[in-house]
Design a protein around this nucleic acid. Structure first.
Length: 598
RNA sequence: GCCUCGUUAGCUCAGCUGGAUAGAGCAUCCGCCUUCUAAGCGGACGGUCAGGGGUUCGAGUCCCUUACGGGGUACCA
């Protein structure tokens, strides 16, 4: 595709030289895809040339078009509408393009010049005090997809999960468990470990609020009550015990975190995300202090009277930021400084991506600026894939108000919806029970993943339950369905004993739907490139949709197996097979699997 | 207050470095299954691109401004 465009650009320059004796400035030498309602495939805008040439836009278009039609073999025709020169490409050139596409396997790495080679993507990064919810799903799907997309550019990618396994929030669950748990376990309760812990986190909050209410009734001011409530002080005590290595507390912490990890593992498995490396905040939270020391020695950080350590980022347009508390304990950013260094030591990345919600934009700026102050070589390599919140039709998700959408439950629902729809269609006789279960799972998750990934990550999005399980239109199952059509055609061809040999020389004319499809297929490389660069799986999702649509249009317009002309039939079978492979790999980048039948 | 992001069809979203009559899906309505999967295809309806200025051959896109909304601005994470 790029070669074709490049060739046309050079031809345009030659044309301008031959006809007008001038050079087209690089800025004006832009080709854009022709709008659907006009004939042609590439459009050159002649407006910018009117000044230098002193001629009308149409006149210029006519002259250039005429020259190209006569002298450029790739151009079969042209038309001029106002300042737009639309170029039509010969079928031979389209077939040429198809051959270069087919020369590479569909899953072959797409080289992107100047793209990073060693990449680490940190995503998921859950707290271990409650189960995953809808917001985590967006994070997980984004992280997984971005990692896969960058892999597709040939880079070496490490998927990392920084587990936030320590802190006051964990102690709250632990404390509630101690008080009200009666030795309950996930097995004895028959509840997934993460949900069990989540139950106690909620329980803590409930009792805590009762205590506050009671204190308030006794005439204590609200903010004082919040600090003085017995449960809160007990939780803080527990955190100190934990940091001091108290055996009982640490033991309980290990047990309860263990339950949570079992629960998370199960969820990760069902939603199909994975990690190459786990970091635990309990291991890394002290590492940042060494970086703070380093900054003080280098004189880029400073100490206030009370002993707290700060960095002054006002020159960078930020504020003074605290790096270490007066009592010497670390804050949020302290740990991040440590983890960044650790990751660099272990993986030597030239790009380190953090998949974190956009409420932390400022924090990430501070992190990067602070690392720059320290003169860290990897500071520039830090990229924040900042994504927007997922809103519900009822408004914001708030865990305290119980308006969160639980991840496990949501997955069950989408799979159930896929099952119901599949049974209704009744096209799956002959599949075994386990194959059917797999199919429902693929479709349900396909719908959910596509739904969450098709929106630009940076934007806040609305989660509409009905639309997330929808199977029609711009949805995952629509694309999966298109894939099964290619698979079906392939099977039938096999049964009929056809092993298509593509002979492009025997084809005199292409159908419009075939040209469109070739153009779609040829775009894939640049699509992956820009998705990787902008860290946007939405671009891949859109592409899958466009490709599937182009295929379906062709599917209803021309015959495949019953095409009498053998050369044409083979071309279509080759196109169909390629579309299937391409859809499979592209959906794979989004973590979406494809069934052979549905 | 300051910083930052957003506002496109009834709803959910596309719209690449400014380019043609602003595009999809859903919803509503109308067609198409005795030939390869109708989870499909075609068509209709639907827009003062939040408002106002500016830059230019040309602005949804760039600049300024107003309104509304989100997020941030903690010795919380």
């Amino acid at each position: 595709m790029q070669q074709l465009e490049q060739a046309l650009k050079t031809a345009l320059q030659t044309a301008a030289q031959a006809v007008f004796g001038v050079e087209i400035p690089a800025a004006s030498l832009v080709l854009q895809p022709t709008r659907k309602d006009f004939a042609g495939s590439f459009t050159f805008v002649t407006f910018p040339l009117t000044k230098t040439l002193g001629k009308g836009p149409e006149q210029i278009g006519q002259a250039l078009g005429e020259w190209l039609k006569a002298s450029e073999p790739r151009v079969s025709g042209y038309n001029v509408v106002k300042g737009f020169l639309n170029l039509e490409i010969t079928d031979a050139e389209w077939l040429n393009l198809l051959q270069t596409v087919l020369a590479q396997p569909a899953g072959a790495p797409v080289a992107v010049p100047g793209s990073p080679q060693r990449v680490i993507v940190e995503y998921s990064s859950p707290n271990t005090n409650k189960p995953l919810h809808l917001g985590h799903l967006r994070n997980n799907f984004l992280g997984y997809a971005v990692a896969e997309i960058i892999k597709a550019t040939g880079a070496h990618v490490t998927k990392a999960n920084l587990v936030n396994d320590r802190g006051i929030h964990i102690c709250k669950s632990m404390l509630a468990y101690q008080r009200f748990g009666h030795g309950e376990t996930p097995t004895s309760a028959g509840i997934k470990g993460d949900h069990l812990i989540g139950k106690y986190y909620v329980l803590f909050d409930k009792h805590y609020r009762e205590e506050i209410k009671q204190l308030e009734a006794e005439g204590v001011a609200t903010d004082v009550a919040k600090k003085q409530a017995p449960l809160m002080t007990a939780a803080q005590e527990m955190l100190q015990q934990w940091e001091a290595g108290d055996e009982e507390v640490v033991g309980l912490w290990r047990t309860m975190n263990g339950w949570v990890y079992e629960g998370f593992d199960e969820t990760y498995k069902t939603i199909g995300v994975d990690f190459d490396k786990f970091y635990y905040e309990s291991d890394t939270y002290l590492l940042g202090k060494a970086r703070v020391e380093e900054g003080l020695e280098k004189g880029v950080f400073f100490t206030k009277e009370n002993g707290s350590v700060w960095v002054d980022l006002q020159a960078e347009g930020l504020d003074e930021k605290l790096l270490l508390r007066a009592d010497g304990t670390s804050v949020y950013i302290t740990q991040d400084l440590g983890t960044a260094e650790l990751k660099y030591e272990q993986f030597g990345y030239d790009s380190s991506i953090y998949v974190i919600g956009d409420e932390q934009n400022y924090h990430m700026q501070v992190l990067q600026a602070t690392l720059q102050k320290l003169g860290k070589p990897y500071a520039e390599a830090i990229h924040h894939l900042s994504y927007g919140m997922v809103d519900l039709p009822s408004g914001k998700m708030k865990s305290r108000e119980g308006t969160v959408v639980d991840a496990d439950e949501l997955v069950r629902e989408v799979v159930e919806a896929a099952k119901a729809a599949t049974l209704e269609k009744g096209k799956t006789e002959g599949l075994s029970d386990s194959e059917l279960e797999q199919l429902y799972h693929m479709l349900g998750l396909g719908a959910l993943k596509y739904y969450l990934l098709k929106v630009d990550p940076k934007k806040r999005m609305l989660f509409n339950p009905a639309e997330s399980v929808s199977l029609e239109g711009d949805t995952g199952p629509f694309i999966q369905y298109s894939y099964t059509r290619t698979a079906s055609i392939g099977r039938k061809a096999n049964e009929m004993g056809i092993s298509p040999k593509l002979d492009v020389t025997a084809i005199d004319e292409l159908h419009a739907s075939e040209r469109d499809l070739i153009q779609e297929l040829a775009r894939y490389g640049s699509v992956v490139g820009s998705a990787a660069q902008t860290m946007s799986p939405a671009i891949i999702a859109q592409y899958c949709y466009e490709l599937a649509k182009a295929y379906n249009r062709m599917f209803v317009q021309v015959p495949f197996l019953s095409e009498p002309d053998e050369a044409k039939r083979n071309l279509r079978l080759a196109l169909s097979a390629r579309v299937g492979e391409q859809l499979k790999t592209a959906l794979g980048l989004l973590g979406i699997q494809v069934p052979e039948r549905m």
